[in-house]
Structure formats: C-alpha cells, structure tokens
Design a protein around this nucleic acid. Structure first.
Length: 367
DNA sequence: AAAACCCACAACCGCGATCGG
DNA sequence: GCCGATCGCGGTTGTGGGTTT
C-alpha cells in the first residue's frame, strides 16, 4: 500500500487555516467541484496538501454545515446510535444533517462521554460503572479475553482495538455482536404496522434514515421464528426519551419527554449487561432460537460447539426471515449491490466481520 | 498580573477501501 | 489481476481561548 506523503514531509503549511485560504478553497470548489483534491492546492494556489484541503472543505467550509451548538435531539441520537453501532462517526453523522463525523466525534469526546461518566455510566459499554465493577468481581475465576475493553480508564479505552460491540466472547455478548439493529429501541409503537409497511421502509430507505431502517430490520426479524426482539430488546434502552440538555448530571434526573407523557430518566440510557452474562432474566423467553438458552450460563459453561451453533442458528433465522419475505413477494430480491439497502449492506458486512472475528476468537487459548 | 490548567474543536495521521489506468 | 493514486474513516494531537489559582 502506497502512503501519501504527509503534508509535513512535503514541507507544506499545516497550521490553522486563514480566511484567505478558505476563500481560495471556496473559489476552487465553485470552479472545479470536489471530485479531485489532489490538484486543488496547485489550482487554488495553496501551500497545503490535497488531503488537508479536502478536510477543510468537508469539516468546515461546506455550505450545508451547521455551526450552531448541538441540540438535545441530536445529543439523544448520538448517544443512542453510539450504543447501537459504536464509534462509527461517519454513519452517525449521516443521521445528523449538517454535522460532520468530526463534529460528532468531538462532541462525543468532549461533552457526552464526560457527561455519561459523571453520571456513573461507562460511555463505552453504556453500563453503570458499579455493574462493571461487580461483573469484574463475578468473573474472577472466568477466562478473560485479551480483547476486552475495560473502559474504566482512558488508558484502557485507548489501548483497546475492538469496537464496543465486540467486547465479549460470552454468549450474551454474542447476541450483542450479532444484532446491532436490535440494540435500538422503538421510537414509537409498531404493533399496528403491517409487514408491508416494514418492507416498504426497507426498500425506500435513505442513508439519513438509519434509525427507521434499523427499526424496520428489527420488525423483519420479528417475523422470523426467532423472536429476538422480545428476548433482547428489554436489556437495552428502554425508552427513546430525550434528556434535557440543561439537566443536571445526576443520574436521577427526570424530565418530561418530548413526544409522550412518560418521563425520562438518564438511567434509561444505561445498557444492561452489554457484554457479560449475569443473573438470569425473568423476561427472557425460551423461544425457538437457541441463543437465549444460554443466557444464564457462565462463559466457561458454553462450549465452542454451542457458540458455533448459535451463530449458525442466528444466521439461518435471519436468512429465513428475509427469504420468506421474498417468497411472498413482499420484498424484492436484491441481487445487485446497488439494490441493497444501506442497512442490509451494513449488516451483511457486519455479519461477515463478526462471524470471522468470533470464530478466530474461539481459536484463542482460554486461560 | 501571570502562570497553570482546562476545554473545545480544528487539523493531522495512518490505515483500509476503492478507484482507475 | 496488478498496482499506484486517491478517498474515507477513526483515533489522536495541536492550538487558542477561557478559567482558575
């Protein structure tokens, strides 16, 4: 892989952009567009590398960017999406018109992460610190993956190289890994939605409607034999309600939610047991899906064969759900990538990666 | 008043993915 | 299919302004 020489190596300007430089970039874009940044510095008369010009345009000069403070709605969305898909800022930023991935990332790192931490919530796992500490105590004799993210300290967080949803090799963690779409709450009741509505949502998706797509995928999954939603969703965000941006940092702060008469507590933003098996859950159903059968097992009680079977079962169930819809002409078979919805593509890629990583993980020695 | 510290965010780095000859 | 060029992304660092000591 050929590396682009850095601006530094080329002895190009690297400090903050001046108004004059910004004007040159704007003039360049209005004349040449944004398709070729390599030639931008030369054509615009700038002593910057093309990459730097592109970033300046993308993160600051684009006319569609918002430069106001984040709203509480945006804040809510960031937290929810971060819990669902981790630090994939580009995807999260797509859900926030006028915001860049850099904006979202900075806002998370400077505001939201600290806000959650001050409330006793681990911003990586979205679990209370107390639970994490308790979990550490509970798993004293259990094998620990070297890839696990502790997140109790900055050092631990930054030294980890897995995404938050890849924390575990436990059975419960596996559930988390496999179904990012199911980590999202319903923003509104869906019992009156028909399957056709769900499929319509899937086929008429837009990149800026990730939440709706995730929820639609969730409903499609519900149509399968494996009722993940009943089993899993209660463990995650229970409400979609919005905390007031001006609310105190107390974890007991309660505000009236925007769109319903219910109340919101910051504790609703906790993820329960994001990656460790703990107590058996009363509301867990013993469904046809085998994933849940090990919900109360400890890590070392779950054999590799069982976990492999769970992966296969999950893959099969999801495939079957989609296949059923296709057979009923409720959804078009998407044979080309161009026809794939954004989220289907995302989940497909995710599955491949997760399945591969997880099987590799199983090959690691257990201590 | 000045040094130290904190904070927000702009900018950069390095990597993998993708494009195109 | 190969390979160099470019893009896009997430993580990290640098900078400047505000606040505290």
């Amino acid at each position: 892989m050929v590396r682009i020489p850095s601006c530094d190596k080329l002895n190009l300007k690297r400090d903050l952009w001046t108004a004059e430089e910004d004007a040159k970039i704007l003039a360049y874009v209005s004349k040449h567009g944004t398709s070729n940044w390599t030639s931008a510095p030369k054509k615009a008369g700038l002593r910057r590398c093309g990459k730097s010009c592109r970033l300046r345009w993308t993160n600051y000069l684009r006319p569609d960017l918002k430069h106001q403070n984040f709203t509480s709605q945006e804040e809510e969305l960031i937290i929810r999406l971060h819990a669902a898909i981790g630090s994939r800022w580009a995807i999260i930023a797509q859900q926030l018109p006028g915001r860049t991935d850099n904006d979202v990332k900075n806002y998370w790192n400077t505001k939201l992460r600290r806000k959650l931490s001050e409330m006793g919530i681990d911003p990586v796992t979205h679990k209370p610190f107390s639970q994490i500490l308790a979990d550490y105590g509970n798993i004293g004799g259990l094998p620990r993956s070297t890839k696990r993210i502790g997140s109790l300290s900055r050092e631990m967080k930054t030294s980890a190289y897995m995404k938050p949803e890849h924390h575990s090799n436990s059975a419960q963690g596996l559930v988390d890994l496999l179904t990012p779409s199911m980590l999202l709450p319903e923003t509104e009741p869906v019992m009156d939605k028909s399957m056709n509505d769900n499929v319509h949502q899937l086929n008429n998706n837009h990149p800026l409607n990730l939440l709706a797509q995730l929820q639609a995928m969730q409903r499609v999954t519900e149509a399968s034999h494996c009722t993940f939603n009943e089993q899993i969703q209660p463990h995650f965000y229970t409400q979609s309600y919005l905390p007031s941006s001006s609310s105190s940092s107390s974890s007991t702060t309660t505000v009236t939610c925007r769109n319903t008469s219910s109340t919101f507590s910051w504790q609703d933003f906790l993820l329960e047991d994001a990656f460790l098996p703990s107590e058996p859950r009363e509301h867990e159903n013993v469904g046809e899906c085998s994933l849940n059968q090990n919900g109360c097992q400890t890590e070392n009680e779950i054999s590799k064969e069982e976990l492999n079977k769970e992966i296969c079962d999950y893959q099969y169930n999801r495939f079957e759900a989609m296949h059923c819809l296709v057979e009923n002409n409720d959804i078009e078979a998407s044979s080309s990538s161009a026809e794939n919805t954004f989220i289907e593509t995302l989940l497909h890629q995710e599955d491949k990666i997760i399945l591969f990583d997880f099987l590799n993980l199983l090959e690691e020695p257990l201590y």
